[in-house]
Every structure is written in structure tokens, then in C-alpha cells.
Design a protein around this nucleic acid. Structure first.
Lengths: 219, 219
DNA sequence: ATTTTGTCTTTGACGACTCAAAGAGATTAT
DNA sequence: ATAATCTCTTTGAGTCGTCAAAGACAAAAT
């Protein structure tokens, strides 16, 4: 039974391990977890000795199958809890991320199953992030189509919000760019870095980096 | 913000501090928390220096008003969570104690308020234990009327189960002696230590120490 | 009054997690 | 090629919660 610290390390590595190599730099982890680089080195060594990951000094870190499975379970818990807090406890979707951050380490599999059942086995959380199934070993990555890259003037639907920070979610809330919303890019100006979108009966203006955090799908 | 260990110490002291003096022996805590006496001494000293309790060496320990308030909040969380797990998640009431044991340290006040509201501000958990209100500073003690002491042949109602251990709850479940059940003591034999009770359409036989763990109220 | 017994405290140590600061490797710039 | 820079690792130290074992105290027994 990993401690909640180890669970957080696993989760941070998993959501950052992209593509084939799936190697994550220790510096990125230090940044993400808010600890000093030395702390990461120490923890990573101990996790490696427990078989949760492989550590190539000065290269980075890669989850073993076991570490990956554990990490997936944590992500699953987190996203199911988020969904539960919104759907059943009617909490504000801007608040639930941090609540789930604590709860994900305290909830047993038994309770999680009940939650899953009550929610009707959802496949995505309120931010549009996919909820891994119980046996899944793959974390679906974003397809890469976002408001920063999608074709202009064609209709899309917001699929997923790739940034959980309160300020950004507050903006999403304000503009109505939540998962499920219909959206069309009116124009995109690389020079000024501004994207203008039309929604059902409103419009939104945002910067390119922010647009890249809103994944969309053709509709 | 106390750690979950400190919260457990506070809770253990609170539920054991009876009557006026409200002094708890450190040995009782060691027993209850499953740690060695030396550990209790160490923790108790650090909690005393934080103003959560007073420690009379070789006498015992007494919560300060601050410690008491904190402890009440933990008990409140525990019992609300238990109630939630049974009523909303439809979990078996025999399982919820240990689940709540973990969850009580991870749930924010915000979430707790939602839970409280959804449950309709209950005043007792599934075992009949009173749920302290948000500002309450008193932990209601058992009135002392139990199946071991109540008048025979008169009708009573089960009010509260004073033992949360799985084996005992399993017995309660089996016999139907759950809070709310109507019960009448047919006879009590001090020589053999046996109490026989009638329920709605069944009967139950139990030992005197066990009968003392079932609080009842005249009806 | 002295010994025994039971309970509580002290001491030294350890594992998990963390930091600050110094050191080592690798990459980029000059 | 050498220096500068950036990133990562090492080292020494600290906190929290824990244990085992040795010591101190007080109440009960003789």
C-alpha cells in the first residue's frame, strides 16, 4: 500500500509521460509537486527500489507496469470523485479538483465502486478528462485538436479542459466554454495571439496558449 | 491544522473522557490507539505544547477547550460520513466504521456541509450515536439504560449500539437489534449471565456484557 | 517498612518525507 | 576548447510518528 505521497508522485509521472518513451524529467516533477529537485531524486530512488519506476540518472524516470497500474488507479479515483462531488453533492466544478486531491487517497475500492455505480459508470469527469476503466492500462491522451488548431468557421464541441487551475476554470465558467458547449472559431490572429470564438448566444476572446487548453471535436 | 494522527488522538481522548474530571489515563490511549505507552507520552507532550490538552505526568490527560472543539469536529465528521455511506451509498452498516475512519481526515468542511444537507441534518448515525452539531461542545453520554439494566417485560426501543466491532455489529444485524427496533426483556439470569429478549417476531439471547452495549429507551 | 507489581516516562533509534547548499554532468555559448 | 549555464545528485540536517528497552514512580502486598 503506497503512501499518499507516493500516489501523488505516481500520478504526476503518469499524466506527464507522453508518447512511446514515456520518460519524465525529474525537474518537471519537482516543479509539478512543489518540492526541491533533491527531494525528487531521493523519492525517485526509493520508488525505483520498490519497483514502481525506472530511473536513468540525469535522464528521467519511467513507470514500470506495476507503477503504471497503481497510477491509473489513482487517476481513476480522482476523476470519479470529482464527478461524484459535482453530480451528487452538487458542488461547484471549480472547487472539486482540490477536494478530490485529498479524497483520492482516503477512498477505498469498495466505496469507489459504489460511487461508480451511482454515477452510472461515467467515462469522463466534469472537465472532460477520461475516466480510466478498472483494468485500463492506457491513459488516453488529448487528440490535439484544440481551439488553437481547429479549423475556423466550422462547428465544434468542447470536449475537454486541459488546465485545472481555478483562474482558468473561472474563465471557462464565465464564458460558457464548458465540455459539451458548441463553439466556432471566428478568427485567429497569430500576430496579436488572439482567438475569437462564437458560442450559442455569446462570444469569447482568448489568447493562443489558453485556446490550446481547450480540446474540441468536430460536430 | 492537525495531522490525522493528532485527530485520532483527540477523538480517542474525547470519547473516553467521562464525567466532570474528564481525565484519561495514557495507558488507556495506548491500548485504544494500538501504540506503545512511550509513543503516547511523546505525542501527548507535543499536543500539550500545542495547547490541545493538559498532561499531568502519571495522572492522565485532559482536553483543553480548543482540543475539545477540534475533537468534536472529528467525531461529527466521522458520524456524518458513516451516515452518508449508509444512506446515500447504500453501504452495509457493518462496513462503514472503518471507511469513515479514513475519510474523516480527508473531508473538507465544505464537503461535509453538503453531506449534512443532503442527509437532512441527521442527529444520529446508523449505530445510534449522536452527531454533534457544528457548535456543540458537549458529547452526549449514554443515559445508562441498556438491555442489561432496563426493566423486564416492559417495551423498549433500541436507541444506540455502544460497540462498533464487526463481530458485534454482525450479531446485531442477525438478531435485528438495530436502532429503532422494539424489544422487551423476557428474563435476565445473573447466575448464568444470560439475557433473553423478545423482538417483533423473533427472539434473541445474549450475555450480560453484550446486553450492556445495547442502549434502549422506554416506549 | 520493605519489596513487588503495574503503570508511566525516558532514551536512543529508525523510516518516510522534506529542505538547503554544495557538488557533478551535460549542454550551450563564446 | 574553454567557460558559462542549466539541470540533476549528493550530503547533512530536521520534523513527525513510531518502537524497544531501560528507568522512575506509586500503589498494593507482605
Amino acid at each position: 500500500m503506497p503512501t499518499s505521497t507516493v500516489e501523488n508522485y505516481l500520478k504526476a509521472i503518469l499524466v506527464r509521460s507522453t508518447g512511446d518513451e514515456a520518460v519524465v524529467a525529474t525537474g518537471a516533477l519537482a516543479e509539478a509537486l512543489g518540492v526541491t529537485p533533491g527531494t525528487i531524486t531521493t523519492m525517485v530512488k526509493s520508488m525505483a527500489s520498490r519497483g514502481l519506476l525506472e530511473h536513468q540518472p540525469r535522464e528521467g524516470v519511467r513507470l514500470t507496469p506495476e507503477g503504471r497500474t497503481l497510477a491509473m488507479a489513482v487517476v481513476r479515483k480522482h476523476r470519479l470523485v470529482e464527478t461524484f462531488l459535482v453530480q451528487v453533492l452538487h458542488m461547484d466544478w471549480k472547487e472539486v479538483h482540490e477536494e478530490a486531491e485529498a479524497l483520492e487517497h482516503a477512498i477505498s475500492d469498495r466505496v469507489l465502486l459504489r460511487i461508480d455505480a451511482i454515477l452510472g459508470y461515467p467515462v469522463a469527469d466534469p472537465h472532460g478528462d477520461p475516466i480510466p476503466s478498472r483494468k485500463s492500462h492506457l491513459l488516453e491522451r488529448g487528440k490535439g485538436v484544440t481551439l488553437a488548431t481547429c479549423e475556423a468557421l466550422k462547428p465544434f464541441r468542447v470536449e475537454r479542459i486541459l488546465d485545472q487551475s481555478p483562474v482558468f476554470l473561472e474563465f471557462i465558467q464565465r464564458t460558457g466554454l464548458k465540455p459539451g458547449a458548441r463553439v466556432r472559431v471566428r478568427d485567429r490572429d497569430p500576430a496579436s495571439g488572439v482567438v475569437r470564438c462564437d458560442l450559442k448566444d455569446s462570444e469569447a476572446t482568448l489568447g493562443l496558449p489558453e485556446a490550446a487548453k481547450i480540446e474540441v471535436k468536430a460536430v
